[in-house]
């Protein structure tokens, strides 16, 4: 992969990495509660570089809270988050993109009034260096970097088969397509760490298979480490390298799909609420 100069910071080694093996993400003793309701309770685990890491658990287990804490939308009560060699008590959301982290949301978080192409290209706006004035006047540098961003966005549309929807306002598209647009927006900046919050909710089997392929490619060819919340246990088992299981805000299992399948604590937690596995969270 040839990287353009603007991507160079991605390839630089991180300054200080406390763990023995370099990890893309580590959470250490993360606790979080909302007005007395505990969402996360001392959760610790690591995500190795290049890994596809699934986070599963019954409804309300704290999976989304975990991603929200990692992306700085929630401020943990205690514990730390390690991202790319930096340690945070509260992750600064504004710096996520610069840290090479991007994410999708459980409920779509798209820019409804903008076209598909604009939505995806927005994922690169933080890299643009030209000032407002240069953009308005149309200086060559501003035009060039913009054209470059849109070229990348178009390439990603092609990758996710979104060319037909290119100029449509995103609010007018079907749910499944919007999900893919959001993934495209997250991928366009070539993140080192990609957080996916139920990317396949509400998708058909074919769509799921297609998306599974896309996620693999994102890891294998785009070099993204992936953290994935997903309810479809079949997808999770087939796709992920390691799985973390949350229940009532606690980490009750952590290991390979094989290990998780045989983990008694996980089986106990799930047997009671087995119907939730397919039902989806719906919140």
């Amino acid at each position: 992969m040839t990287a353009t100069p603007s991507e160079a910071p991605h390839l630089q080694p991180s300054a200080t990495q406390p763990q023995a093996a370099p990890s893309a993400l580590a959470v250490d003793g993360l606790s979080l509660s909302f007005g007395g309701v505990t969402a996360l309770n001392g959760v610790s685990f690591t995500v190795a570089v290049g890994e596809i890491r699934a986070v599963i658990g019954p409804n309300g287990a704290g999976k989304s809270s975990l991603l929200n804490a990692v992306s700085g939308l929630y401020r943990p009560d205690s514990g730390r988050v390690w991202l790319g060699g930096h340690s945070f008590a509260a992750v600064p959301t504004d710096r996520l993109a610069a840290l090479g982290v991007s994410r999708t949301f459980q409920n779509l978080a798209l820019f409804k009034g903008l076209s598909v192409l604009d939505n995806v290209a927005a994922g690169l706006t933080h890299r643009l260096r030209a000032g407002v004035l240069a953009q308005v006047i149309g200086l060559p540098t501003a035009r060039r970097e913009r054209a470059d961003a849109y070229d990348r966005a178009e390439a990603l549309l092609a990758f996710l088969h979104l060319e037909d929807a290119r100029d449509r306002p995103v609010g007018t598209l079907p749910y499944g397509v919007q999900k893919r647009v959001e993934l495209a927006r997250a991928l366009v900046a070539r993140p080192r760490l990609l957080l996916l919050d139920e990317p396949m909710a509400g998708m058909t089997l074919t769509e799921k298979q297609e998306l599974t392929g896309c996620i693999r490619v994102a890891r294998d060819d785009l070099g993204a480490t992936i953290v994935l919340i997903e309810h479809d246990i079949g997808v999770v088992m087939g796709l992920s390298d390691r799985i973390a299981v949350l229940d009532y805000g606690r980490l009750i299992g952590d290991g390979t799909p094989e290990a998780i399948r045989n983990n008694q604590a996980v089986i106990d937690a799930y047997l009671g609420v087995a119907h939730d596995l397919e039902a989806g969270e719906g919140i």
């Binding site: 992306s71 939308l73 959301t93 504004d94 710096r95 996520l96 993109a97 610069a98 991007s102 994410r103 949301f105 978080a109 798209l110 820019f111 409804k112 009034g113 903008l114 927005a122 994922g123 706006t125 933080h126 927006r185 900046a189």
Partner: peptide, 11 residues
């Protein structure tokens, strides 16, 4: 359209 998403993508 979505302030949180805007923040997350680094705007």
């Amino acid at each position: 359209d979505h302030e949180t998403a805007a923040r997350v993508i680094g705007l």
